[in-house]
Amino acid sequence: MTLYALCFALFLVGLYGLLTKRDLIKIILSSGIMGYACNLMLVLFGYRRGGVYPILERGREAGPMVDPLPQALVLTSIVIELGVTALLAALAIRLFQKYRTYDITKIRRLSG
């Protein structure tokens, strides 16, 4: 319960950054923070007390394991995050190249 709330707080920190920051780099970082929070939330929901990682090993007793499904989902989500970061970074450096600034309000003013 506390962990869920803290994880949600991390999500809101990212949202705060996206809503208030005007610097392209910080916007990219904020979207990354939101991604971390979502991923972590999913894995938190899948944790089982006393469970071990869901990989069978030779000679190990088959004890309780944590929920493997969120892990599979988060794997996908991490890849998507990297894609977003790469695309946003590419757009940001194109914008910087043109306007020589990372400030989105200035970019808007310059582009009219």
């Binding site: 970074a89 590419a90 450096i93 910087f96 190249q97 043109k98 020589r100």
Partner: peptide
């Protein structure tokens, strides 16, 4: 591609 990209050219 990012390494090849030159920020200063033609800006």
């Amino acid at each position: 591609a990012m390494a090849e990209f030159d920020l200063d050219k033609g800006a």
